[in-house]
Amino acid sequence: MPPKKYPAQAEEVDDIKRSLDMLTEEVSVVRQQQKTIMSLVEEVKALRLQNIEKDKRIMSLQNRLADLEQYTRMNDIILTGVEIKPRSYARAVATLNEGETNEQDVTSVEQQVMAFLHSTGIELDRDNIEACHTLPQRNKMDKPAIIIRFTNRKHKMELLKQGRRLKGTDVYLNEHLTKKNADIARKARLLRRQKKIQSTWTANCKIFIKTNGTPEQAKVQVIKDLEKYQ
């Protein structure tokens, strides 16, 4: 025979049952919320993976675009340190007003470049030049940089080999690098001065470095990023 319940005990039992029922409901709600949260977490993970893949594709496209931009400059040389005089004041004013160099001024720049290079003993066939003109200047007081575009890469390489004749002067012949590659080349030269690498140079618009170490350990590498050498 079950024990007899007194009114106070019965009320207490009822309270406990109601509490358990409420707790059960709350647990059910929490479990549902947990499922929702886990579902959202999985969705966030999937979105992150998608973003990583998109970032990789974007980086790949950016690199391809940078390579294409550099390829368009493969036949170019940048000549710096040579003073170029305008053909006449009137023509110079007309050029500034037009915002571009006309054919006669291009010829003038080309003639002055040819004359200067020949004066240093550098041989250059004018028929191998496709274009020759100054680049826009940030500081009008500086000597303008001059771009020399050749009909093919072989003639560009021939001129670069003769660049040693300019050693000891303030005139330089360099490949026409994109802003990105020029920045990498500048940082590589800084690393060389800091003795973090042995040497650096460019060839066919690619930046090369030779790492530190013994002759057996040192490696020649084409670089597109210098972070691990910083």
Score class of each variant (00 low, 15 high):
Y71L: 07
G163H: 03
K140V: 13
W201R: 00
N97Y: 15
V113Q: 01
K228Q: 02
Q217E: 04
M22P: 08
T72V: 06
Q70F: 02
E53Q: 13
V30N: 01
L23C: 07
N51D: 13
E103N: 14
T95V: 08
R18M: 11
E100W: 15
Q217P: 12
A94N: 10
L47A: 12
I58L: 12
S119M: 03
D55R: 02
I37T: 14
K224W: 14
L96S: 09
S108N: 09
Q104W: 05
M141S: 13
Q62M: 15
A90F: 06
Q34G: 09
Y172C: 05
E25W: 12
Q32K: 12
D105S: 14
Q9S: 09
L117A: 02
I52F: 15
E43A: 15
E98Y: 08
Q104L: 14
R189I: 01
K45E: 09
I197M: 03
R193W: 04
K224Y: 12
P136C: 05
M141R: 05
R193H: 05
K187P: 00
D225W: 03
V222N: 09
K85Y: 04
R57A: 15
L61V: 15
A115V: 03
I209Q: 01
T214N: 03
E103G: 14
Y71M: 07
E69I: 04
R64A: 14
V171G: 04
T211G: 05
A92R: 11
V41W: 09
V93I: 11
R138L: 10
I207W: 00
Y172V: 02
L117G: 00
R165T: 11
D55A: 07
N181A: 08
M38R: 15
E42A: 09
A203E: 12
A8S: 15
I148E: 00
S19N: 10
H155P: 08
M157F: 07
E26M: 06
D170P: 04
V44W: 02
L177D: 01
L177S: 01
S108C: 11
K187C: 05
Q137R: 06
W201A: 00
G81E: 04
E227V: 07
D183G: 06
N51E: 11
K187T: 00
Q194C: 08
D127Y: 10
M157R: 07
N152V: 12
Q50P: 12
V44G: 06
Y71S: 06
E42H: 06
T24H: 13
E158Y: 15
I147H: 05
I16V: 06
I129C: 00
E43M: 12
T72K: 15
E11P: 08
